[in-house]
Design a protein around this nucleic acid. Structure first.
Lengths: 99, 99
DNA sequence: TAGGGATATCGGGAAATTCCGATATACATT
DNA sequence: AATGTATATCGGAATTTCCCGATATCCCTA
């Protein structure tokens, strides 16, 4: 886990919000066919909520994914993103010991 | 505490190192007249260790200070920087609950 | 296989960040 | 007052980030 890369990923209001929304997806996104806990939330819903263009959100999701904090699953035409809870925990522990 | 500002401050290798050095200053810096625990470490020592120019280090210390994670004391011609442990704790707790 | 919907990628302008050298300021000593 | 030392600030070139519109890709359905 690259600390600097993770902090860069988190140093943007929108990306921070996305990570927090994905913590409790049922609370922040309308119901969808697939189970949010299992597969996550599709890009379109995140795009709607974030109020930035689709291309920007897609890029931001990539940045978060590269940092390791979220992961994606492609199902049909949809890509679902959810938190990587193991990585989030690792980050917290890293911060706990290194900050 | 502005989360985005704090993460920006931490999204740089050198600034991250500085914050970590200041965690145990006696371990990372040569002895000095003033008590490191009390007043911190002077800019010159941090500059020496960081291998960047004095002006860059001075700016980085300002960024860390604006984020709230460190604080400074001026004594004579020296400015000593030390961690703001309360703010560091607040950050950890914020991350614990919000990430 | 043609068309449409969901997402990713590309190219780019504007703004921010990185890091520098030069210079200013502040303080101590002589 | 003059000089030397420690730090801060300024101006700037190079790079990165932000966010967009346009377009490409992928997948589904008719």
């Amino acid at each position: 886990m690259d600390q600097v890369e993770v902090f860069k990923a988190l140093s943007n209001k929108t990306r921070l919000m996305i990570l927090q929304w994905l913590k409790e997806p049922e609370l922040h996104f309308p119901p969808q066919d697939r189970d949010m806990k299992e597969v996550g939330v599709c890009v379109g819903q995140i795009h709607c909520k974030a109020q930035l263009t689709q291309s920007t959100i897609s890029e931001y999701l990539s940045i978060l994914q590269r940092s390791g904090l979220i992961e994606s699953t492609r199902i049909g035409q949809w890509t679902y993103y959810k938190r990587n809870e193991a990585a989030c925990l690792e980050l917290k522990q890293l911060i706990e010991t290194s900050i």
